[in-house]
């Protein structure tokens, strides 16, 4: 299928990109990985007048740790994360996510920041960013700003990025040795949108109690959600199966999915519960805490 015609801009600097975005406003779309946008354009469901291709912008493909944060530039591809031994060994949650987004070929193009900006209701990265308490760095005519992920993700397909602005970086807190996470996703097959998925991050105190927990669920509501009640239930407690059951139950409670071919609302809600439970068990296991 052939997309509708559009005007193509290929800025060579961030300034140039921002000036295009300022000029064309809502008519323009940023093209990063394009793995959601281009198929939508091929179906002519998306017909942007202008595409601002940021792939030639210098210095946006970095992955670096800085000030206690892992910073991923806007052109970091999912495979950059997936194939990184450092990320695999220390960032369990985002490593898990990087292996199940879309399919292996799509991941070579798809970007982490692009996925967060797209904010698809089934987005994998959004759930992970919520659980890991990520932040987004945004550039615009007014300069730079940083938003915590909960403020950044506004609604399905909507973020706090204003007209003329562009997200340039996502930041994940560097996990310490007592922190681990996991991403549990069920999909009907590789490449399908999740039927339900849960991102979980747990930090333990030296005494084995849970210091902090982050739980995000996706594909089970209008957008990825934080399961705050579950986090509260876990915080300060010794991890037991009972506790995990109680926390997971909170995911079911707040999930509010649409029924579709992937499952009924009832099924998806239950899967939110099961997957949060499984994520917690797996994350704890990675910290050598066996709950069963």
């Amino acid at each position: 299928m052939i997309p509708a015609a559009f005007e193509y801009k290929r800025p060579m600097s961030l300034e140039e990109a921002l000036s295009h975005l300022a000029q064309y406003g809502a008519d323009a779309r940023v093209l990063a990985g394009g793995q959601s946008l281009i198929p939508a354009m091929r179906y002519r469901l998306a017909q942007p007048a202008v595409l601002v291709d940021i792939n030639k912008l210098p210095n946006l493909g970095y992955m670096k740790e800085e000030n206690g944060m892992l910073c991923l530039g806007a052109l970091v591809r999912d495979t950059d994360v997936e194939f990184s031994p450092e990320i695999r060994s220390r960032y369990h949650l985002i490593s898990d996510v990087s292996m199940v987004v879309a399919d292996p070929i799509v991941r070579f193009r798809a970007t982490v920041v692009g996925s967060l900006c797209h904010n698809d209701p089934s987005g994998d990265w959004a759930a992970a960013a919520i659980a890991a308490r990520a932040q987004m760095a945004i550039q615009g005519p007014g300069g730079a700003r940083v938003e915590p992920i909960d403020r950044f993700l506004v609604d399905s397909f909507a973020t706090s990025i204003g007209e003329g602005e562009m997200a340039v970086e996502v930041r994940f807190p560097v996990p310490n040795a007592l922190t681990s996470g996991a991403y549990e996703k069920i999909e009907r097959k590789v490449g399908d949108y999740a039927t339900a998925a849960a991102a979980v991050q747990v930090e333990l105190n030296p005494d084995g109690t849970i210091k902090e927990a982050g739980i995000g669920i996706t594909a089970v509501a209008h957008m990825a959600l934080r399961v705050e009640e579950a986090e509260k239930i876990l915080r300060g407690q010794k991890p037991t199966l009972e506790l995990i059951r109680a926390a997971a139950e909170e995911a079911r409670k707040i999930a509010n999915p649409n029924p579709d071919a992937r499952g009924s609302a009832e099924y998806k809600k239950d899967m939110a519960r099961v997957l949060v439970g499984r994520g917690l068990i797996k994350a704890l296991k990675r910290l050598n805490v066996v709950v069963a």
Binding site: M1, Y8, R10, L31, G34, Q35, I38, P39, R42, Y43, L51, D53, N55, T79, A102, D103, P104, I105, V106, F108, R109, G191
Partner: peptide
């Protein structure tokens, strides 16, 4: 048309596989 089947997969810059139906030629 949905970036699903992969029969259009080519190699970009030696080490990257891409679905060439999900990239514009200008890119």
């Amino acid at each position: 048309d949905s970036s699903s089947c992969g029969v259009c997969t080519v190699v970009l810059d030696g080490k990257t596989a891409v679905k060439s139906c999900t990239m514009f030629a200008v890119q």
